[in-house]
Write a protein that binds this DNA or RNA. Structure first.
Length: 491
RNA sequence: GGUCGGGUGGCCGAGUGGUAGGCGAAGGUUUGCAACACCUUUUACAAUGGUUCGAAUCCAUUCCCGACCUCCA
């Protein structure tokens, strides 16, 4: 039983063995982006963390339904229940329809995720597509007595709820502490208590995004969409709910309260939260104005970036830290990641050239075991990577003839590397550039390098070096091997 | 102020009682030279005290940093 997947549950603050609600199936819901701006490194961290989980669960033969929402309404700019909708604000500033803003940034997000090789979730529901479900949820909460209407808006009655239910359990706080530290805000006369949050909000006259309801023309509160959509697609109880740590309070705490008020029980069995990306020790975030967008990373177009970093470098960089640790961004760290990744991928190429021997002098079974143990330990990718680098040493030693591997072990090693590097970690070799080269192009480069080989054989170093140096200038990487050469196009 | 989490070598980053790993640097092997690869080396656990055969890891005190408490992945 020791080698089972364990995940850290924010609710219990412990690692727990993952046992799904329904044997053989796993349901996961993750808070996706609010689409009012370009995706940045933080979005990538969350997406990659849960993509890894999604891939691993599938690898463990679970039938996984992965729901990641898109928030396209209800997220207000400032204080929780006042202020402009984020998307409407962007629309006003850019003179666009709110849905144009939504579409634009969904496109940006999808494109970036695609580059990062983040798999599409099973379902990507949008809040605006689930207004009816959200209205139904409001009805349920009112019926259970934990919400009240006030001037066309409906608020969740936190104090009443907290009398019989633990509010603050997930984020580890007490209602009295929250009360004492809550700021006095303008326009909160509608609420019974400053802790109450809106689940339906009456639209002000200038508000564009609005839907009819029996309380008012308005829009749903931010926290509600996740309760409505997760229960719709995963059921009133489901396995895993993920998101960034900064969503723990108030968003997830509110979700928990809503679910319990609406359904009479908790919905989520395992809460998982990924930590933040930091920049000079400070959280990278839109509101702090220190976020670097993913596009900027891919093109190098940001003053803080010394160069462009490929999507795979970013993906690998994320995997070098555990998902619950903060990860500090720096050019140095990214360049180290770039080189580490190249070394790993090179070894996986080398693996294809290795020939099996009678006997093995290496222990591939143990390597395999170590890799899985690391993954089962709350997705400990940095440790799994460390073991894979032991594998890299192993591969290079075999290729050098210093160690030998049997046919069975070689197959095992190949399988391990393929599964971990490509299937689970989702890393890819340079964007299939090789396949985009035409046969004629490849033939021409091969011809040049064969000429160089001839020159070398004739000890005509001038010609040999000229060919190599000119090709290097054009962006090729040239390597001499034992019995010839290899080349590839740098990206 | 409240709650929670941290402080590890030049950089990043694992690690809850007994050699992570990557990147960098130095030296060497290989090579016509180079790249790749390989071998060796290097510097560490914020401070102080304590527990222990043995502590980065446990306890105490101190200092420093961050996250959340408003919207944020």
């Amino acid at each position: 039983m020791e080698n089972q997947l364990q995940i850290y549950n924010t609710l219990s603050r412990k690692k727990e063995v993952f046992t799904p609600l329904h044997p053989g199936k796993a349901g996961m819901y993750v808070c996706g982006p609010t689409v009012y701006g370009k995706p940045h490194l933080g979005h990538a961290r969350s997406a990659i963390t849960f993509d890894l989980l999604f891939r691993y669960l599938k690898h463990l033969d679970y039938k996984v339904r992965y729901v990641r929402n898109i928030t396209d309404v209800g997220h207000l700019v400032n204080d929780a229940d006042e202020g402009e909708d984020k998307i409407e604000q962007r629309a006003r500033l850019d003179e666009l329809e709110p849905m144009e803003v939504v579409q634009l940034y969904i496109n940006h997000y999808e494109k970036a995720m695609d580059k990062l090789n983040v798999l599409s979730p099973s379902i990507e529901p949008r809040a605006t597509g689930h207004i009816l479900e959200q209205i139904e949820a409001v009805e349920k909460i009112i019926a259970s007595g934990f919400a009240y209407e006030s001037n066309g808006s409906v608020y969740f009655d936190v104090e009443k709820y907290a009398r019989n239910h633990p509010y603050g359990r997930l984020s580890g706080r007490k209602t009295e502490d929250m009360l004492s530290s809550t700021r006095e805000l303008e326009g909160q006369q509608e609420k019974h208590s400053p802790l109450d949050f809106a689940i339906w909000k009456k639209a002000s006259p200038g508000h564009i995004m609005r839907w009819p309801s029996r309380w008012s023309e308005g829009f749903p509160g931010w926290h509600l969409e996740c309760t409505a959509m997760s229960s719709k697609y995963l059921g009133e109880t489901f396995d895993i709910h993920g998101g960034g740590m900064d969503l723990t309070f108030p968003h997830h705490e509110a979700e928990m309260a809503q679910s319990r008020a609406a359904f009479g029980h908790d919905s989520v069995r395992y809460w998982m939260h990924n930590n933040m990306i930091t920049l000079n020790g400070q959280k990278m975030g839109k509101s702090l104005g220190n976020a670097i967008s993913l596009d900027e990373f891919f093109t190098g177009g940001h003053p803080l970036l010394e160069k462009a970093y490929s999507p795979m470098t970013i993906r690998y960089f994320m995997l070098t830290a555990h998902y619950r640790s903060t990860l500090d961004f720096s050019n140095e760290a990214l360049q180290a990641a770039e080189k580490g990744l190249a070394r790993l991928l090179k070894a996986s190429d080398t693996l294809d050239l290795i020939r099996a021997s009678e006997k093995s002098t290496v222990d591939t079974a143990r390597l395999r075991e170590c890799c899985y143990t690391a993954m089962n330990d709350d997705l400990n990718t940095p440790v799994a990577l460390a073991h894979l680098f032991d594998g890299v040493k192993m591969i290079n030693a075999i290729a050098d003839g210093k160690e030998t591997v049997s046919a069975g072990d070689l197959a095992d090693l190949k399988n391990l590397f393929t599964v971990f590097i490509f299937h689970l970690f989702g890393l890819q070799k340079h964007e299939e550039e090789a396949s985009s080269c035409s046969a004629a192009f490849e033939g021409a480069v091969d011809l040049l390098l064969r000429l160089r080989m001839n020159a070398k054989a004739a000890k005509d170093w001038g010609t040999a070096d000229m060919i190599r140096n000119e090709l290097l200038k054009l962006g090729f990487e040239i390597k001499d091997t034992k019995d010839g050469f290899s080349w590839e196009l740098r990206d």
